[in-house]
Every structure is written in structure tokens, then in C-alpha cells.
């Protein structure tokens, strides 16, 4: 068991290394990259929007009773804002992204592997690693931060609605409240880590699909383990990120 985890970690690292070796040498698959950005970004929009909205409302409504007990209701925007931007936004969006995009990359490349389409590309004189893997990994790495910022914005707006369900605040006051509390140390590390989350989802999904075993079973397993492994890695990276920010004194 332990040795398979080690072997798998090694293989994924190797795969990621191959990405850096191949990815930045011509020929560049610009058209395919743009298409993948569109697919990866656009497909996840509705899901990311809905989860962001619910996250914002639920956080607000849940924290209200506690905050009221301490007579700190006016602190709700600040607290919810910080929670969303620093932690909930990035992690929830990344997990949703892993479930939606990680599995679809794993299944797509897996079925291409199984039906010899990847071999067919190679025989056609195309580097399938560049065409399929590099473009997808770049797309997930670039799109997840954007989706996260979008989810943050929607969640914050939902928090504003949540506050207005039981009390009153104006949008201007609410916005002002949040902007004045959020610092560089809150926003930048949170954005940076989403690049890593996106990279993890892309590279693991591609690795699982690219190395899928023969048979339909192999495709299912590729999709499934792409989600499981990338979700786990997202949490591990998050743990690492919090260590780094506290070491830098940004917490």
C-alpha cells in the first residue's frame, strides 16, 4: 500500500516534470489551448456560480446567531468576507473544479488512450503530450484562479443578501466594510494558491487518463481516481499554503 502511494507520487512528479520540459518548447498549440480554456472555464461557470452563492448565504446565516450572542452583528461582513476570500472560496471552488473538470479530463484522455486515439495522434506525427496534456494543464492552471475570483465575488454578494434577510445594510457600506478589512496578505496568497490547485487538477486528471488501462473499466477508474487524488492533493496544498503564509507572517 505504502509503496504504491510512493510509486504513484513518483510517477505523477515525473509526469509534471515532463510537462515543464515539453510545455515551453515549440511547437505551441495555441489554438487548442484557447479552446481548452474556453471548455474548462465556461463549463464550470454555472456550478461555480451556484456553489459560490450558496456558500455566501449559508456562511452569513450560520454565523449570525453566534455573532449576535456577542453583540457583534456589525462584524459579520468582515468575518464572512475574510472566510470567503482566504479559505472557503479557493477550496470549495477547487473541489468543485476537481469534481467537474478533473473527472472529465480523466475520462476523456482515458478513453482516447483505450481506443488508441493517442497512438493515432503520435502516428500522425503530432506530439500528443503537447497537444493533449500541456494545453489542458495550462488551461486548468489559468482558469481556476479566474473562477475562484468569480466565486468569491458571487459569494460576497450572496453574503450581502444574507445580511439583508434579517437586518439592513447598504451595498456601499457592506463593500466598504470588506474592502477596508481585506489586506494584501489576505488576497494575494489566496490567489496564488489557486494556481497550484488548478495545476494539480490538470496534471492529475491528465496523468490518470493518459496512463489509463485497457478496457472501459480503465476509463472509469481514471476518472474516479483523478477526482479522489486531486481533491486530496488540494487539501495537502492548502495545508502547505497555510504553513507558508504563517511563516511569512501573513496570517
Amino acid at each position: 500500500m505504502n509503496s504504491t502511494i510512493l510509486a504513484e507520487t513518483g510517477a505523477i512528479t515525473n509526469f509534471a516534470w515532463r510537462f515543464f520540459r515539453h510545455g515551453f518548447r515549440p511547437r505551441y498549440e495555441v489554438q487548442e489551448l484557447l479552446y481548452q480554456c474556453y471548455v474548462v472555464g465556461y463549463q464550470s461557470l454555472p456550478l461555480v456560480g451556484i456553489t459560490g452563492f450558496i456558500m455566501g448565504i449559508v456562511l452569513t446565516l450560520q454565523s449570525r446567531p453566534t455573532m449576535a450572542q456577542f453583540g457583534a452583528e456589525s462584524w459579520i461582513p468582515t468575518m464572512v468576507g475574510l472566510t470567503i476570500v482566504r479559505e472557503m472560496g479557493p477550496i470549495i471552488t477547487a473541489l468543485i473544479f476537481a469534481g467537474k473538470i478533473g473527472s472529465s479530463i480523466g475520462a476523456e484522455l482515458g478513453s482516447m488512450r483505450v481506443t488508441e486515439q493517442i497512438d493515432a495522434m503520435e502516428v500522425a506525427g503530432t506530439n500528443p503530450f503537447k497537444y493533449l496534456v500541456v494545453t489542458r494543464v495550462l488551461a486548468t492552471t489559468l482558469m481556476l484562479p479566474i473562477l475562484t475570483l468569480l466565486a468569491d465575488a458571487i459569494a460576497l454578494y450572496a453574503a450581502y443578501i444574507g445580511i439583508n434577510l434579517k437586518g439592513v445594510t447598504t451595498l456601499a457600506l457592506f463593500t466598504n466594510n470588506i474592502i477596508s478589512t481585506l489586506t494584501f496578505g489576505d488576497v494575494v496568497p489566496a490567489v496564488i494558491k489557486t494556481f497550484f490547485f488548478g495545476f494539480a487538477v490538470g496534471i492529475i486528471g491528465c496523468y490518470k487518463g493518459y496512463n489509463a488501462n485497457k478496457g472501459t473499466e480503465g476509463v472509469g477508474r481514471a476518472a474516479n481516481s483523478a477526482v479522489v487524488v486531486s481533491s486530496l492533493v488540494i487539501f495537502l496544498l492548502d495545508l502547505l499554503a497555510v504553513q507558508i503564509t504563517s511563516a511569512l507572517g501573513l496570517n
Binding site: 488508441e116 486515439q117 497512438d119 493515432a120 502516428v123 500522425a124 506525427g125
Partner: peptide, 14 residues
């Protein structure tokens, strides 16, 4: 490979 054509047993259409 541009000079060699290959027809896959499974067709391998994209």
C-alpha cells in the same frame, strides 16, 4: 511518420 500511413485495427478515429 509523415511518410508512413498506419491503419489501426480499432480505427482510432478522434
Amino acid at each position: 511518420r509523415t511518410k508512413v500511413g498506419f491503419l489501426f485495427q480499432s480505427n482510432a478515429l478522434y
